[in-house]
Computed example of a mutant assay.
Amino acid sequence: MNLLKYSLLPVAIAASAISTPAFAEAGDTFVRVRAIVVAPTETSGGILPTFPTEEVKVNNSIMPEVDITHMVTNNIGLELIAATTKHNASGKTGTTGGIGKLASTWVLPPTLTVQYHFAPEAKVRPYVGAGLNYTMFYSEKPSAGLQAAVGQTDVNMKDSFGWAAQAGIDIDLNEKMFLNFDVKYIDIDTTARLATTAIGTQRVKISLDPIVFGVGLGFRF
Results as ranks from 00 to 15, higher is better:
residue 103 A to D: 00
residue 200 G to L: 10
residue 213 F to K: 02
residue 199 I to D: 08
residue 42 E to K: 07
residue 147 Q to I: 13
residue 44 S to A: 09
residue 173 L to S: 09
residue 8 L to R: 10
residue 110 P to K: 05
residue 119 A to S: 08
residue 114 V to A: 15
residue 156 N to P: 01
residue 179 L to M: 11
residue 87 H to K: 04
residue 56 V to T: 07
residue 93 T to V: 15
residue 126 P to T: 07
residue 124 V to W: 11
residue 8 L to E: 13
residue 183 V to Q: 03
residue 55 E to A: 13
residue 120 P to V: 07
residue 21 P to A: 14
residue 99 I to Y: 05
residue 192 A to I: 14
residue 16 S to H: 15
residue 148 A to L: 14
residue 67 D to L: 15
residue 213 F to H: 01
residue 56 V to L: 14
residue 184 K to C: 02
residue 133 N to L: 11
residue 11 V to T: 13
residue 13 I to N: 09
residue 16 S to C: 14
residue 8 L to I: 12
residue 107 V to L: 14
residue 213 F to T: 06
residue 168 G to S: 05
residue 115 Q to W: 06
residue 144 A to L: 09
residue 1 M to C: 11
residue 1 M to W: 04
residue 66 V to W: 03
residue 40 P to G: 09
residue 62 I to N: 08
residue 53 T to A: 15
residue 12 A to I: 12
residue 17 A to W: 05
residue 3 L to R: 00
residue 183 V to R: 01
residue 204 V to T: 11
residue 16 S to V: 12
residue 207 S to M: 10
residue 204 V to Y: 06
residue 97 G to A: 10
residue 121 E to W: 01
residue 54 E to F: 13
residue 10 P to L: 08
residue 39 A to Q: 06
residue 35 A to F: 14
residue 5 K to S: 12
residue 211 I to A: 11
residue 8 L to Q: 13
residue 128 V to L: 13
residue 63 M to K: 02
residue 1 M to L: 12
residue 209 D to Q: 08
residue 188 I to R: 03
residue 91 G to R: 07
residue 45 G to C: 11
residue 160 S to P: 01
residue 79 E to Y: 02
residue 41 T to G: 15
residue 206 I to S: 04
residue 67 D to K: 03
residue 87 H to V: 14
residue 194 L to M: 15
residue 52 P to M: 05
residue 181 F to V: 12
residue 119 A to E: 00
residue 104 S to H: 03
residue 149 A to F: 07
residue 175 E to F: 08
residue 193 R to V: 15
residue 18 I to D: 04
residue 139 S to G: 02
residue 101 K to I: 08
residue 162 G to S: 07
residue 187 D to Y: 07
residue 185 Y to W: 15
residue 118 F to S: 01
residue 43 T to K: 12
residue 93 T to R: 10
residue 175 E to S: 09
residue 115 Q to G: 06
residue 47 I to W: 04
residue 121 E to R: 09
residue 209 D to P: 06
residue 145 G to M: 14
residue 209 D to I: 06
residue 149 A to D: 05
residue 25 E to H: 13
residue 210 P to F: 14
residue 86 K to F: 08
residue 28 D to L: 10
residue 197 T to F: 14
residue 158 K to C: 00
residue 144 A to R: 00
residue 49 P to F: 12
residue 155 V to M: 10
residue 56 V to G: 10
residue 67 D to W: 06
residue 134 Y to I: 06
residue 215 V to K: 00
residue 33 V to A: 12
residue 180 N to E: 01
residue 72 V to S: 03
residue 131 G to I: 04
residue 169 I to K: 03
residue 29 T to A: 15
residue 54 E to A: 11
residue 31 V to Y: 04
residue 38 V to G: 05
residue 167 A to G: 13
residue 158 K to Q: 01
residue 62 I to H: 07
residue 122 A to K: 00
residue 19 S to Y: 09
residue 65 E to R: 08
residue 56 V to N: 00
residue 77 G to E: 01
residue 181 F to K: 02
residue 88 N to L: 02
residue 186 I to G: 05
residue 33 V to T: 11
residue 114 V to M: 13
residue 63 M to D: 08
residue 116 Y to T: 02
residue 4 L to V: 13
residue 71 M to V: 03
residue 41 T to S: 15
residue 11 V to C: 12
residue 100 G to Y: 01
residue 88 N to S: 14
residue 105 T to L: 08
residue 17 A to Y: 09
residue 148 A to C: 13
residue 170 D to E: 10
residue 201 T to Y: 11
residue 68 I to R: 06
residue 39 A to F: 10
residue 124 V to K: 01
residue 217 L to Y: 04
residue 102 L to G: 04
